[in-house]
Every structure is written in C-alpha cells, then in structure tokens.
Design a protein around this nucleic acid. Sequence first.
DNA 1: GCCATTTACGTAATCGTTTACGTTTCATAA
DNA 2: TTATGAAACGTAAACGATTACGTAAATGGC
Lengths: 339, 339
Amino acid sequence: MTPTIKDVAKLAKVSPSTVSRVIANNPRISPRTKEVVREAMNELGYHPNYTARSLVSRNTQTVGLVMPSSGDKVFQNPFFPEVIRGISTKSHDKNYGIYMTTGNSEEEIAQGVFDMVQGRRVDGLILLASKVNDPMLDYLLERDFPFTLIGKPHERESRITYVDNDNVKASYEATMHLIQLGHKRIAFVGGGMELVVTRDRLNGYLDALKDAGIERCDDYIVHHEFLREGGRDAMYELMSLENPPTGLVVTDDVMAFGIVNTLEQMGKKIKQDISMVSFNNVIFSELANPSLTSVDINIFKLGYEAAQCLFDQIEQPNLLPRRIAIPHQLVVRNSCGEA
Amino acid sequence: MTPTIKDVAKLAKVSPSTVSRVIANNPRISPRTKEVVREAMNELGYHPNYTARSLVSRNTQTVGLVMPSSGDKVFQNPFFPEVIRGISTKSHDKNYGIYMTTGNSEEEIAQGVFDMVQGRRVDGLILLASKVNDPMLDYLLERDFPFTLIGKPHERESRITYVDNDNVKASYEATMHLIQLGHKRIAFVGGGMELVVTRDRLNGYLDALKDAGIERCDDYIVHHEFLREGGRDAMYELMSLENPPTGLVVTDDVMAFGIVNTLEQMGKKIKQDISMVSFNNVIFSELANPSLTSVDINIFKLGYEAAQCLFDQIEQPNLLPRRIAIPHQLVVRNSCGEA
DNA sequence: GCCATTTACGTAATCGTTTACGTTTCATAA
DNA sequence: TTATGAAACGTAAACGATTACGTAAATGGC
C-alpha cells in the first residue's frame, strides 16, 4: 500500500492537516515541524494522491485536447504532432498534464468532451480545429468552461478566445505569388467548407484573383480531405478539365504531397508544368521533390500560445476573450515556376 | 453547479447508492426504479464525476505515456504520432483516455512518471523507448505497477511485458539487401548505444557482414540523433573517410532524410553514388526523392498491441509477462542501386 | 500581572462517489 | 402460520486529500 497523508502524520506525530500544510508550504507551520514532516515523507516515500487532491480542490492540473473527428487519420498530418508539441511545452512549464481522447465520429468526440467537462477530468480545453456551426462551442460557452480555440470561430467570435493566423492575408499572398509569376489559371484546393480555415483561405485566394483582375472560375475550386488521398483526388478532378490550371493554391502540405505523387504518375512535372504553393510548412515540405513553396504558419507557436491563453483563463476566470494572431511567412522553395 | 449524485437521488426520491447502482446497471435494482432514476439524470443533465469515482474505485480509466526525454524533439519524428495512434485506437475501444507529460531531461521525465504512478493518475503506463539500464523499469517492477514497453528491455527481460520487432533479423535482412546488390563497404548509422533498438540493429548488421565474409570496420559505425541533423552529422563523418562507404544501413527514416539532403549538397546522388536502406517506413518515406527503401516495422500495430497488453495486465493483475513480436517487412523503393 | 493578539497546530467537515452491510417487504415452503 | 430466503433498496463508512474554524500556548503591551 502506498502511504497516505495519515501515515505521514502518524510518523511525524502531527495531524494530517499539518502535513497538508507542509506540502503546500504554508507559512503558518514552523520550520522545525516542516523539517520533521518532510523527513517522515521521505522515509515513507510519500507522494500525494492527485485524485483525492483534485476532488476537494476542484482542479485537475490537466488540459484536455479535442481533435477533429477523424481521430485515426489526424495523426498522419504532421500539423497535429507539432501543435501538440507547442501545447505540451507550455503545459509542462505550468506543471499541467495533457489528456486526450479520440473518437471515430462527431458523436464519439462529443461524448469524450462531455466526459472531460462534466466529469471534471480537465481544467480546460484546447480545440484543435474550428468548424462552422460547431455546437461544441455553444456547449462550452454556456457552461462557462475555459477553452481556447486554434483557428478562428465562425460564430460568437467576440466571446471566444482563440489563436489563429491571418489566413485570408496568408492566402492572398500565396495566390499573389503565383500571379506575379504570370499564372492566370489558378486553382484552389481546399479542405471541407465546414472548416473555417478553408473558408478564410478561399477568401484570400478570391481577393487576390479579384485584385489581379482574374475572373473566378468555380471549376477551379475543389475540396478534399487533408490527406494525400485528398490531393490525389483533387488532381484527378482538376486535370480532367478542358483547361487545366497552371497554378495551384493548396491549403495543406500533406495534400500537396499527394498532388506531387499524382502529377508524377500523370507524367507532369511540378514547377515546369504546374506551379504549387501550399500551407503549413510542415517539417517534410523541404524534403519533397521538388521542395515545396509553403506558407509557414508557425504551428508550434499556435499551440504554445493557445495553451498560454488557456492557462490565463483558468487562473483568471473572468478574463475577457482574447484573440491572438500568429504571424505567417511565405517560404519560397522549388515548386513554383513562371507561367 | 453541476448536479451530483445526491441531487439526482433527491429528485428521484431514492438514495444516492441506488443512483450509483443504476449507473452501474446493477441487476439488483428494479427496472421501474431504474427508469425513474434515469429520467431524473436526464432532467438534471447529470454526469458522474470521474475524480470522485476514481478516488473510491481506485482506477482512473487512463493510461500514461512515457516519451523519451528529448520531449520537444520527439514529435518531429513521425514514429511517435503513429505509435500514439495505435495506442489511442485501442484505448478508445476500451474507454480509456490517454495522459501525457513531457520533460526536457531524464530527471523531469522521471518526475512525471512518479506523479503518474504514485499520484495514481493513471492505471498503467506505456513506455515508448527502451534504454539500457533504465532505472524506471526497476522502479515500476518493484511497485508492481502495470506497464508495457515498446522495444526490447535490456535487463530483466523475463519479467517485463513488451512489444517489439525482431530488430536483429530486420537489420540482418536490410544489410543483406545491400550485400546482394554487391556492396562491400557498408556503414551503419544508428542512434545512441543507450537505446536497445540501436544495439539490436547493429547486431543484425554485424551478423550479415559476418555471414557475407565482410570484415567489420569500426569507422563505418556511427551514432547520431534520430533527427535530420543526426543524418547530416553522420554524413560529414562518413564521407570524410579515406574510403567512404557505398552502402548505408540507417536506423531511422528521419535520419535518412537528413542524409539525402546532405548528400545532395555534397553533389552526390543516392542510389547512383550511394545506396541506403533505412528503418520505420514512415509515411513520408515514399515521398522523399528518391523514395526510400525502408523496413516497415508496423508502427501502428506496435502501439495497438502494446495497449492491448497493458489492458490485459490491468484487468488480470497476475498475468505472466508476455512478449509480442510485430512482423516487419523490407519495402524496396529507389534508394538502392548496384555497387 | 492581566488581557489581547499572534503563532502553531488540531478537529472535523467536505469533495462526489462506491460498496459492505443492514433493513424492509413480500413470496414461498414446511 | 411461521420461519426462510430473496429482492429491492437504504445507511453509513470509506477513498485521501484540503481547509474553515477552533484552541492552546507563546508573545507583547501597558
């Protein structure tokens, strides 16, 4: 049996409450007593039971992570490990642990969140993907449960603390990069329209076209999963067009990898035949052949700052919602050529 | 205030214990009463408090993950997300959550483990890297705390449940692949010798050389980090040799990526100038240029089976230690040519 | 030397569950 | 009819901490 606070108390000949105060380093306990108690703790190898502590102090020292629903596929995208790395770094500084559940459906994810929130398993949540009309946001807002969103909320923006890039601007710049290289037939390959990030990047793309006097062509706007398969499907769709595009704005590097593969199989060359700029600047973007021109969105910092915001909220419950914008940067490599 | 079991009891006009039994679906409660209680639960939006439940039932329904110490770098290697995916999939089936802490040093990691184990935050642990002389193993063994190791333990093998590949054989095959292509000057690029996986793969490499009648050359055996930088450093070391190798056995794909880059900068071509076979068959191995010949070690399954073993242990505390071997397979792509 | 205040600690309630044991009710057997 | 047992639920003691409140002793002021 692992020793409890009572065992320590008995050995040190004090009451349990005194031991508790020594643990908390309460100044009302004399240095002498503290010494005695600490010795007893060492002798027994005492370690406080977090569960018991949580029950009374009503906090768990852990933050919950809510992944997008395709829980099993999500980890194939290096975005998530990297954002978790950011969250984890900050959490570790604050002595918080991280709790994760996954699920295969929207339903299962929601169930996991209910468990965390109402079961009091975590002190706050970080949501890793912003969707349109996400009922989860209302649920959390209603309960006044601390959370921060990575990505921009679609509704209730003023009430939600979130960390995001300026995706409209980023996408504008990415598109402009292609335009400046002389491209006119530029396609947009995005994720589902239920994702706010897709919408923002689509808007940036459209703004750029408009400013350049290029007419929008709906055939050039396609949506697929943030996976290699998604990139492949997008290419099948776009390359069978009568007038296939010469430039691509792709909202995710992993999709871009799929596109590279597919085009290769089609006998086409990135850069020479078709130019592509993608997003996220995932660690492998540099390694693809050719290396990818990609918008670095500073994934690590996205996670790090989100955690920071969350801890601020937990510590100061009636803090006003805050918005943090993480800077982005277009990293030019070898996937774009002149039109 | 979130409702408690007492609130439900009051509304349903029963005692708290009855509510508890309804939650557990205890057959000793009549269907009628169950119905009434369930209605009360719905009306109040009751959700059991996990912390309180954990305290008395002495289990937490969560498993802890112990990462190698370089917590911030670890996530750059797709091995970890993938193994976590495996663990997470199984855990979700069993209704377990996952708890993670990270740390920057051996010390901090250990502290995190103590917290999890003695603080009773988790019901069991999965250790993600096997090191020689790991004091953690003794600590856990001594406490009879359920855990499973991913990788082969260096000591106390018979007392530890672990999931591993046959790395000696895998490395033997990888090396033989190069030998059969006519290579004689074959180098081994491994991680630190404190990692059991490095030792195993080194042994397989040496066995193959021996069987082929090739003399071992210590200059050809180098050790670096499982990162791209590690691959780079390895190349600096090996290519400055008087007789640089023509074949490489590299124990990690991410290192292999670094090697590809570095050789490119040196003006050398993988396959033509130097052949390479690496390990893990990470999702991006296919995308590198050239695509990498790599040993697929079935990372997902490694995680999945580890979780399975852990749950078995948790459910049947005096189960005998078990060893699971996950099959591997050499995936031949484009990084090897004839000598 | 007496009262007030501070210091240093103890007592006991509490957090929200689970569960061993006790009690009531009612059907059944002898 | 009455003892017996099962069925259905209640009582209360845990689980291992924290903390409001109480109290004894020490200190200080005059």
